[in-house]
Amino acid sequence: MRNESLFEQLQDRPVARVVVNCAVTVLSVLLCLMISPTRLPGMEVAGIGPNWLLIWVVAWSVKRSMLQGALAGLALGLIQDGMTAHTPTHVISLMLVGILTARLRKERYLREDFISVALIAFAMAVMAETVMAIQYSIQGDRSLVEIWTYHQLIALGSAVLSSLWAPVIYFPLNRWWQQMSLLEQQS
């Protein structure tokens, strides 16, 4: 009931709606940023955890345009660069994730949201780690054999875990954004 009254209140106030919507979005990003340095038991395999920022970018881009996906990838990539190291950059991989996720017309292939989001997260995690591995290969301060054997481990581990945890981020956020766009259309 409380939720509905909140939505009703927001319906009449476009400014408050934008502010609340932004706050929820920013808070969800912050939550993802705060979980990334942790390795909670049950969330890691061989020291590798889910790629939370990638999950967020996928959740954001699934029902948005390519430009919006790219912008989200750019912003989160910059932040992740700040939290780890500037080179090789995470901007390229996360922007690609945003663009490709938005480009996929997933309704054509799969109806079920739960499975499609998990599948997208799996494929995108593999792709993102591959982009990172290519950057390391070009940079050339690690040996190629080391990079690509490690890449196999990371790509598989982070893809499996990211796809398992993707619905946790995707469902609440997606529901919220759907409600918001509904309100937008009504007013």
Binding site: P37, T38, R39, I48, G49, T84, A85, I154
Partner: peptide, 14 residues
């Protein structure tokens, strides 16, 4: 030790 690296390619401790 409160955390680890925020991605998988770096071996950091926080």
């Amino acid at each position: 030790v409160v955390g680890r690296s925020a991605d998988h390619w770096w071996q950091h401790l926080i």
